[in-house]
């Protein structure tokens, strides 16, 4: 059996998951200019919300997913409102934001572990449907992941480009102070951006949960892949992140063609280092 088609499929799926994380991460980074380390943990919270609703309370899957996405969005919004907003008011430095988000990440992750134990869990129900495409296999969940990424990208593009809210978001990311004086309530805008970015993260956590599974620490690895994708693609650029994510997906999966899968992370960080050294602005400059 030829392995290349399956490698391509795996690469695309990995790229799609990283894209989703990078989209939310870049959206938030673009507007606030700091690395929100708590972003991945919000994804885990999305996954665990669905786990709790569907496994413990026997909710049907679709409503659980919707609640999970909204709940992740709300957590992101609340974290911004309670922590980052106060720091913005104090004009705290980027380092303070970074450390604060590290604190939020650690606290939330610990909370998840206390509530649900650190065990690996899966969200999947029954046996997975699989499809044959171009000589590779793709599961139903993976097909949904691809569809979601496309929808989110299209939705974000429309939102940012054509709505008044989108213009206010872009103005805030370009020149926050000037945005204020022309009457844009930048705190509100940033709050909404956190909701949106975190909801997307939540969805990615949920989908990963259906595809493989969830554990409290999953946020960190998702975050790191999202960050690497963003840096490769061009930090703060929504489309750059997607490009970087797919590139990373391909490099990772083809990188382990002939060697053990444990090399994946080493390869990912190797790529990150290469970019930081030789093209720190990423593929697409903002």
């Amino acid at each position: 059996m030829d392995i290349i088609p399956q490698l391509v499929v795996n690469s695309i799926i990995a790229g799609a998951i990283y894209s989703m994380v990078a989209l939310g991460f870049n959206l938030i980074y673009g507007t606030t200019k700091f690395f929100n380390l708590a972003h991945g943990t919000v994804a885990a919270i999305g996954g665990y919300t669905v786990f709790y609703l569907s496994k413990s309370l026997d909710f049907p899957v679709l409503p659980s997913v919707i609640v999970g996405v909204l709940f992740a969005g709300c957590i992101g919004y609340l974290v911004d409102k309670s922590v980052f907003r106060a720091l913005r008011k104090k004009k705290a430095s980027g380092m303070v934001f970074l450390v604060a988000s590290l604190g939020v990440m650690t606290a939330l992750q610990a909370l998840v572990a206390i509530l649900f134990s650190s065990q690996f869990q899966t969200l999947s129900v029954g046996s997975a449907k699989v499809y044959q495409v171009f000589g590779g296999v793709i599961t139903q969940v993976q097909a949904i992941i691809l569809l979601c990424v496309l929808l989110i990208m299209a939705g974000l593009t429309l939102l940012l480009r054509f709505t008044r809210f989108g213009k206010a978001v872009r103005a805030t990311s370009d020149e926050e102070e000037v945005a204020k004086i022309v009457g844009i309530n930048t705190n509100k805008i940033i709050g909404r951006v956190f909701f949106l970015g975190s909801a997307i993260a939540g969805l990615s956590g949920i989908l990963v949960g259906f595809d493989t599974g969830i554990e409290p620490a999953m946020g960190l690895s998702l975050l790191l892949k999202g960050v690497i994708a963003s840096i490769i693609g061009g930090i703060g650029n929504v489309y750059g992140g997607v490009l970087g994510a797919f590139l990373l997906g391909f490099i990772e999966n083809f990188g382990i063609w002939k060697i053990s899968g444990e090399w994946k992370d080493a390869i990912a960080f190797g790529v990150l280092l290469i970019f930081l050294l030789f093209r720190p602005q990423g593929l697409i400059k903002k």
Binding site: T163, R164, F165, K167, A168, R170, A171, S173, D174, E175, V178, A179, V182, G183, I184, N185, K188, I189, R192, K286
Partner: peptide, 23 residues
């Protein structure tokens, strides 16, 4: 200016109503 926005959007964004939800 809002450097990464078009000339038109630089002006339009100012005309945004201050109510974020309706926007």
């Amino acid at each position: 200016l809002f450097e990464q926005m078009s000339v038109l959007d630089n002006v339009l964004v100012v005309l945004t109503e201050r109510n974020v939800w309706s926007a």
